[in-house]
């Protein structure tokens, strides 16, 4: 039996949180995982340096979609810096997994990497 596909992941795959788009977002960025064809678009609305609202849209495997869904919950209320600092360990913890194969890690990291890229771009465009 596949212990990867436990409750949390299946739940978020089948009933994702914050799926859809944000009108006039501060951050909107898409990326794909070419290996599997996972696609994700991350949206964020910011209040200063804090993420006030986070949504995602896309299609892909259970790992990538559940991970993006969980991320939208986690990132809400976090600072830009804290989101940018999220790493593999945080994502695995969020998913309730101890490890993933290198191929599947890419799926799990798609949402967070995409959002981070968007936030970095947003930061670089902000007047100092």
């Amino acid at each position: 039996m596949s212990d990867i596909f436990q409750e949390t992941i299946l739940h978020h795959y089948e009933h994702p949180s914050n799926k859809g788009m944000i009108e006039n977002p501060d951050v909107k960025i898409s990326d794909t995982n070419t290996l599997c064809g996972d696609k994700v678009t991350m949206y964020a609305r910011l209040n200063g340096r804090v993420l006030e609202e986070v949504k995602f849209d896309g299609a892909g495997c259970a790992i990538s979609m559940a991970s993006a869904s969980l991320l939208t919950e986690k990132a809400k209320g976090m600072s830009i810096r804290d989101v940018i600092e999220l790493g593999q360990r945080d994502v695995l913890e969020m998913l309730g997994l101890e490890s993933l194969t290198p191929m599947r890690i890419k799926c799990a990291m798609l949402g967070v990497r995409t959002l981070q890229k968007g936030l970095i771009e947003y930061e670089s465009k902000r007047p100092v």
Binding site: M1, S2, F5, C36, G37, D38, G60, C61, I63, C107
Partner: peptide, 22 residues
């Protein structure tokens, strides 16, 4: 309702190697 990648991961646990993707 099952993404090919998830399918391949579950089959792998059953000893079956198939390909998923493009």
């Amino acid at each position: 309702g099952v993404h090919p990648h998830d399918l391949a991961t579950i089959l792998d646990r059953e000893g079956i190697a198939i390909r998923s993707g493009l």
